[in-house]
Computed example of a mutant assay.
Amino acid sequence: MFKMTHHACVRGVVIDKGKVLVVEHSHSNRPPFWCFPGGHVEENETLVEAVKRELKEETHLDVDVGQIVFVQEFVKEHLIELFFECFIVDGEARLGSDPDNPGMPILTRMKWVEPEELLELPVYPKALSQILFEDHRNFPKIGFQALYEKEEIQKDK
């Protein structure tokens, strides 16, 4: 039996007309900050399904999900966060909600920012903001595929 060691979060990096979409979070226990829209992967949900659902909830956008562009691990929280390049399919971006966090509005603002603004605002993760600032058209991509069954190892004949 496998033991669960990490929880997964997904985030969408949406770039349209040279601007990057970010949402502001306000929590009672820390100052407001900006990040890329997304959240936790739900039980029985694929990573791609989670990205699409989270973007719809938080921004009202329907997206196609591309490659992974960044990965970060929160060691103490046993959380891995995967950032996917996303392409708008339908909808107009407007602030949604974060149903995972009941109570006061957690998402307080949403905006399209120029890549250089990512460095001026408290946008996290800072490392991804720096990458997007340096070249938002050609940022590195990590190959991704979803397998529903393990690939069989071919035996030499």
Rank of each mutant, 00 (worst) to 15 (best):
Q154I: 08
V51T: 07
K150A: 12
H40L: 12
K150C: 08
P105Q: 08
F84N: 02
L61R: 15
G143A: 10
F33E: 02
F36C: 08
Y148A: 04
R109V: 00
Q130H: 14
G66Q: 02
V123I: 15
V75C: 05
E152V: 06
T59F: 00
I153Y: 11
N138A: 08
V65I: 06
K76R: 12
L47F: 14
P37I: 03
E57Q: 13
K52C: 07
K56A: 11
F83R: 05
I106Q: 06
G91L: 04
F70A: 04
N138F: 03
P105K: 05
G66A: 06
F2G: 10
Q67L: 03
G91S: 05
H60Y: 11
V75W: 07
S28C: 11
G66K: 07
A8G: 04
E120W: 09
F70D: 01
I153N: 10
D156W: 09
H136Y: 12
E54V: 02
L47Q: 06
H6P: 01
E151Q: 11
K157P: 15
Q145I: 05
E42D: 04
E42G: 10
R109S: 13
V69P: 08
E49K: 11
A8C: 10
E116K: 08
V123N: 14
H25E: 13
D90W: 07
N101Q: 09
G39P: 11
A146R: 15
T5E: 09
R109H: 13
E92K: 15
V75R: 14
D98R: 05
A50N: 00
L82D: 00
E24K: 15
I88C: 07
R11Q: 13
A93E: 03
E116Y: 13
I153W: 05
F133K: 15
V48K: 12
N29K: 12
G96P: 14
G12T: 01
L55T: 11
R11G: 09
V69K: 06
